[in-house]
Design a protein around this nucleic acid. Sequence first.
DNA 1: GTTCCTGCAAAATTTTTGCATCAGT
DNA 2: ACTGATGCAAAAATTTTGCAGGAAC
Lengths: 155, 155
Amino acid sequence: MAAHTHHAHGDPAAWTDHAARTLAEHGTRSGGARRAVVATLADQDCCASAQEIHERLRAAGRPVGIASVYRSLDLLHGLGLVTRVETGDGVARYEPALPGGEHHHHLVCVRCGGVEAFEDDALERAIHAVGDRVDFDVTAHDVALRGRCRACRAA
Amino acid sequence: MAAHTHHAHGDPAAWTDHAARTLAEHGTRSGGARRAVVATLADQDCCASAQEIHERLRAAGRPVGIASVYRSLDLLHGLGLVTRVETGDGVARYEPALPGGEHHHHLVCVRCGGVEAFEDDALERAIHAVGDRVDFDVTAHDVALRGRCRACRAA
DNA sequence: GTTCCTGCAAAATTTTTGCATCAGT
DNA sequence: ACTGATGCAAAAATTTTGCAGGAAC
């Protein structure tokens, strides 16, 4: 992995391409606002809320209407290109979803609100087993572990 | 278990008592609004949002200010008497938390929005193992499996 | 009697929607 | 040109806060 940045979702460019292709297949036009949202999503280490994306774009000198951010996220989520993450503070966060189904879960710090990602095969297996057992057609899942991050534990 | 209703949280009266005791120990006064919220929580099969609790109380002829519902839930959550559940639709839901730490997770139907509870020891063990492994002081966790419930799968 | 609780209303936030305009195909 | 995409503003929905009156202790 690169020394300066680590992206929890593999190669950002790969996801951007995948997203662009999927959007094209779906017959959508390529407008600037959505392209900017996709680029911002691809560029994050972890999940971001609509408001955060909006703010980041404004700060980057490419302001996008907040409505377009919400509409883009809605569309991307509907196409399975982003995962919706609930970190517990009542706002929806989104992050790129890779086609392979490879994914991670989140550690949420109850003190500073920070979010970190983790992966665990045994956990995935256990979840899969539950999915087979229940009377429910499970298509997705998410896990949030809450507690204190290293920094906040020390404080 | 009773034939007419199944409460996923054990005996409702036991939790109500436990809550009343904890609140008393904490030095709070016993007002009518919070008592009504506690009673409503104790009486549910699964999680409910603040708005739902508010509406239920109004329907039951015991209207409570929405602010009191939010304040009660905040307090109860702070004391660990209720668990906050994120079902993915962007609203916070709450359900009684038993002192023993016994808990369950949720199956959320992406079509009808319904929520069901499930328990799984292997899953708990896997989560616990992750908690030991990561550089995070994990104190709580929740899992949501999304998909289609039996009824919506047929439709 | 003091202090917390409660309800109402106002405010702050987050998200959705309507509509005129602009841009991609 | 046609039609979807965008931005603005208004609306809707959710949650928080200020404050005055009432209730618990």
